[in-house]
Design a protein around this nucleic acid. Structure first.
Lengths: 195, 195
DNA sequence: TTTTTTGTTGATTGACGAGTCAATAAACTT
DNA sequence: AAGTTTATTGACTCGTCAATCAACAAAAAA
């Protein structure tokens, strides 16, 4: 009993299921059948909508990136002043929505994919550039020409903190991660009690 | 014409070939045949010596970790005083031997493996602990109770810098990476011109 | 009402790859 | 010399999985 207009619904379900399954498996060794099953359809239908497994992975990656971007934008909208902007980015990066096992696992795998799939590399590069430029807007008024270096460092630190979270057992601890990043930040800011 | 005592030679060749092939493929989708071929033998022989593909991967991981550990030890032996010790660790981490595409790609994949293969997780945990404790020995005399936090941050930063290198095009730039890490370090050290 | 479009799946194809086995051969042991 | 251990491989088994196909069903269009 086919209802019309299923395409967007099915695609959304598949994207979601892809992320969940990658998170569960911990790697890209996930079969289309598994994903389709979790999304409540046959593997043939999954192929029907996305042509290939790779397209499915890329769609999932786009989705994660979109969510992350939206969260950053939302946080930035509320931030007042340069330092608050930077803090907002860090808080958003480690918010429970992004900093959860599933999503972290997905990130790690996208990184892997970026090594071989050009589209994936492009997507990740877009995210890098956006993060960098967002950080720079906040950092430049604070530290001028050191901003570039600190933005790079912060970017790497964020990635590193994600990476380490993957290995920990127990639930992700976004708070500790933010604290680390903030410590890095304040170490590079002109201290209040200093010349 | 079988010469005796081939086992260690064959195993070493396979380990080396495994790292190369993982680096080339950018992921763990590497067949035993590819590895065996690169190492100059049949896939059957590879299985003969290492029982399974997973064992091969683990042996490769152990090898990379061993090399890295040796380099750290060597650098530490020459270091005088706490700060030099920390600097030595950073320099060794980004030395050309470790900070090259092949090895970096291997690292990324080991990370992935650590999510699902308990032995891999264990190995990576050992490396984490050693790095941390090495850093702490140097940091504690410098900054006392802040040492823990800075060691964690430095560890994450190192990983993050590795991660970012994977995506860059062009040859790895260990110098820039060390510079980033050193900047982080000095930002957390009591300044020279300060009490 | 016939036709076309959209949704859906079970079954199948075709490729690939891990791991096994039987067989061969050279070197050591007794 | 006979037997054992080590080295080595081509051929094979067995399973898995991405992708395709044929077929069916319902809604929309003609």
């Amino acid at each position: 009993m086919p209802k019309l207009g299923m395409e967007p619904i099915r695609k959304a379900a598949l994207v979601k299921a892809t992320i969940v399954e990658i998170g569960r498996a911990g790697c890209l060794d996930v079969t289309v059948s598994q994903i389709a099953k979790r999304a409540g359809m046959s593997s043939a239908l999954a192929h029907h909508y996305f042509g290939s497994k790779e397209e499915m992975f890329l769609a999932a990656m786009r989705h994660v990136l979109t969510l992350y971007g939206a969260e950053i934008r939302g946080a930035l909208a509320l931030a007042e002043g340069p330092e608050q902007r930077v803090r907002a980015i860090l808080a958003a990066s480690f918010s429970p929505a992004n900093f959860r096992r599933e999503a972290i696992g997905a990130w790690l795998n996208f990184w892997l994919m970026a090594q071989t799939v050009p589209d994936a590399k492009r997507l990740l590069a877009v995210y890098h550039r956006r993060l960098r430029s967002n950080l720079l807007v906040g950092l430049r008024p604070l530290i001028g020409d050191q901003a570039e270096a600190v933005a790079n460092g912060l970017g790497a630190l964020i990635d590193g903190l994600y990476l380490r979270e993957v290995l920990k057992s127990g639930p992700p601890d976004g708070r500790a991660a933010v604290a680390s990043a903030l410590a890095y930040l304040s170490a590079h800011l002109p201290q209040a009690g200093k010349k």
